[in-house]
């Protein structure tokens, strides 16, 4: 076991992890943050997306030990029922959620885009969301929700 220190959703943690343990396993099993979903487990679908040091990564392809010293945002750190993040609000309003399994990853990719670029073009939105697969919606409503969240942020 090795000791790592990391900040998750603004809280500092010191964890003992296995060298082969993935970040997604540490988040779900050690910290009980079940919002991060494992879809394909091979970096294809983006369901396990978290923000690590200001960049989106697939937490199924990052070892927990690699995240030593990092600042992580998972879906639990983005908003809640009472005060949803503008992206979450827009997803609900537009109906961009069907089964919901891809949604945490989608929201984190969108949030990270808007944190860096408050006025993204449609093309920039498309690129930012290209690492997240959804097998229900056909993407139209998801992309529209991100656009709406961006416009609300501008006001």
């Amino acid at each position: 076991m090795i000791e790592i220190k990391l900040v998750v959703n603004d809280k500092p943690y010191t964890l003992e992890v296995e060298p082969s343990e993935r970040l997604i396993d540490a988040l779900r099993n050690r910290l009980g943050l079940l919002g991060t979903k494992e879809g394909c487990g091979e970096g294809e679908c983006g369901a396990c997306t978290v923000i690590m040091d200001g960049k989106t990564v697939n937490s199924c392809l990052v070892l927990a030990a690699q995240a030593n010293g990092s600042v992580i945002t998972s879906i639990e750190g983005v908003g809640n029922r009472r005060s949803p993040h503008p992206v979450q609000k827009a997803f609900v309003e537009v109906g961009a959620v069907q089964c919901g399994f891809c949604t945490p990853g989608m929201v984190l990719s969108a949030k990270n885009l808007l944190d860096k670029n408050s006025k993204p073009s449609n093309e920039e939105i498309g690129i930012a969301m290209s690492g997240n697969l959804c097998r229900c919606t056909g993407y139209d409503k998801i992309l529209r929700a991100v656009k709406i969240a961006a416009e609300e942020g501008k006001e």
Binding site: G43, G46, T56, V57, L61, A128, G131, N132
Partner: peptide, 9 residues
């Protein structure tokens, strides 16, 4: 290459 998440890592 890959996706934004993969390119970041």
């Amino acid at each position: 290459m890959g996706s934004p998440q993969i390119r970041n890592q």
